[in-house]
């Protein structure tokens, strides 16, 4: 049995140089992290705009944002990613053709960031809206009474005051965006999950590679958790410990 397990696990397959697949896996992880960071940032920008629009916008804007967040929250990410991937690249190509540039080659990275960003945008809209609503109305009214413009109120009062309320939700969203990148494997972008499957398929060492990729994802999550805890401690400084 000992010889059997030794032949089952062939560690040299994980070597960094080409006969091993370690380097390919790490490159996939890097791609995943790039998309997660890009998509998360795009989502934060969309989410901040969406949250302010949902709270302070006109009736039409409010309704349109409601439709956006409802759709994204009710339809599976996988379906959204397929729809946005095809529709987004198609629309951009038609636009470029209409302008006269001819069809362009859209990098998988940009498309991935775009689709993850749209999905994350809806989630962070909801998280940030809840956080902004937790800011006492008196603080915002006081800022208005001081004669600050809406932009100043947002920059000086609303955003800093809502941050401690938003960080737990936003950190959950970061973890979700790192895991959502795996869905891009279905549209053929070579992030960690897809390269793992390719490596496993060509070496037939399925368990080894999927466990290795799982360890990489887990390490990403655990490292993120440590950083999140540091950020949370800093954002909550001077406040009473949560009950």
């Amino acid at each position: 049995m000992a010889a059997d397990t030794a032949s089952l696990i062939n560690w040299s397959l994980l070597a960094l140089e080409p006969p091993g697949w370690g380097g390919v896996l790490l490159a996939g992880l890097l791609n995943s992290i790039k998309i997660a960071i890009g998509g998360y940032s795009l989502g934060l920008i969309l989410g901040t705009g969406g949250a302010f629009g949902k709270l302070y916008g006109g009736p039409v804007l409010k309704d349109l944002l409601e439709v956006y967040t409802t759709l994204v929250r009710a339809v599976p990410e996988l379906v959204l990613i397929l729809l946005l991937y095809y529709a987004g690249t198609d629309l951009l190509n038609q636009l470029m053709t209409a302008i006269g540039y001819g069809p362009v080659d859209i990098s998988g990275l940009a498309a991935g960031i775009f689709v993850i960003g749209i999905v994350q945008g809806a989630y962070s809209t909801e998280v940030l809206r809840g956080a902004i609503k937790a800011v006492p109305a008196g603080q915002i009214e006081a800022a208005r009474a001081f004669g600050m413009s809406p932009g100043q109120i947002m920059r000086r009062v609303t955003l800093p005051a809502m941050l401690p309320h938003a960080i737990p939700g936003l950190s959950n969203l970061w973890l979700i965006s790192t895991k959502d990148t795996a869905l891009l494997a279905v549209v053929g972008f070579s992030e960690l999950t897809l390269v793992t499957r390719q490596a496993a398929g060509s070496t037939k060492a399925y368990l080894l590679f999927f466990c290795a990729a799982g360890a990489l994802y887990l390490a990403l999550t655990l490292v993120s958790n440590v950083i999140i805890r540091l950020i949370e401690a800093r954002a909550r400084r001077g406040m009473a410990a949560p009950a």
């Binding site: 999950t193 496993a200 037939k204 399925y206 999927f210 990729a213 999550t221």
Partner: peptide
Amino acid sequence: CTIIRGTPLLLQLWLLYYGLGSL
């Protein structure tokens, strides 16, 4: 809980289907 929540569901699915399925 940490392991399941820390890795993508798609990876777990493929680990079970291709990994265990080949074992």
